[in-house]
Amino acid sequence: MDILIIIEDNNGKSHRMGLESIAAAQHMSDKLGLSASAMVMGKNADSLASEASAYDLDEVLVLKHDLLNEYSSDGYAEAVKQIIESENPTYILFGHSYQVRDYVPKISAKLMRPFLADSIAIHFDEKNVSLTKQMFNAKLLSDINPSGDAPYLISFQSASFLSDDAKTGSATSREVSVMLDSSMIKTDSEEPFKEASGGVDLTAAELIVSVGRGIGKEENIPMAQELAAALGAELSSSRPVVDSGWLSPSHQVGSSGQSVSPKMYLSLGISGAIQHVVGMKASKNIVAINKDPEAPIFEIADYAVIGDLLEIVPKLTEALQ
């Protein structure tokens, strides 16, 4: 087997990034002439398998086991490791989800093979691959070469490939099995829950003013609140502002906060790390004020102001009033 895609369960449906991984694998197949198969596991394996088998893949491996019904990092890592040993894929592809962050490094340690995590692109020269990864909070990119013998574990960042590009087809399913016993699983998990919400709902906001760590200190928050009021906008923030206790958690935009798509997202002192950007890149107009011309937020901005927000914001508020 050349490429094995591990498709994650999202309540009975494929995780969005699972389909993106199919697109990634098909891209690799085209370039390198490799075959690609997918694997699904857990209590929803059957429904995931029927979803995956509608794509242009060699096979869909279906793995069921009592100890895989609920996710555990130990169980999933051991199961995938055993499948890698029995099926011998060269590349194992994952979406870089929270679950993948949690268990795939364990497979890497078990096999002593590299995990090229959070890649955004893959390149080929002859038969060698290199992976592109964001570094230094997305300010720089790097090309990374894996070396040594296969297998290589690779995860792709959300939206590195588009699920719409995944070619459909029909793949046959095959049941596979692993040997697990409960002593391998060192954790005991409770049901996932949501924190009592309340606070601001930003998902429907037309206009958003969003503050980042560049606001400097808690005492400067009112400056942004006044600008938001002058625009009739909601106030939101990046994670460090919430982590520092300057605004409540319901203000946070990003992968661990809310996803927004306003008509205008006015970002003040936010660098543009991927975990923030995933929550706001759907905004129709992105206006960014940042004093660092290299800040990655400018890559997705429609309007860019390189300057000091502490000087600009009070005057902007005044001009709007």
């Binding site: 570094m135 300010k139 720089l140 990119l141 090309d143 901005a301 000087e311």
Partner: peptide, 26 residues
Amino acid sequence: NQSIKKIYAPNSAKETVMVEGSVDQI
């Protein structure tokens, strides 16, 4: 088993309007 071949600045795919000038002009 993995090494950095090269690092470089990303280039932007999007067209960005630069809003420049003095603070008042901005």
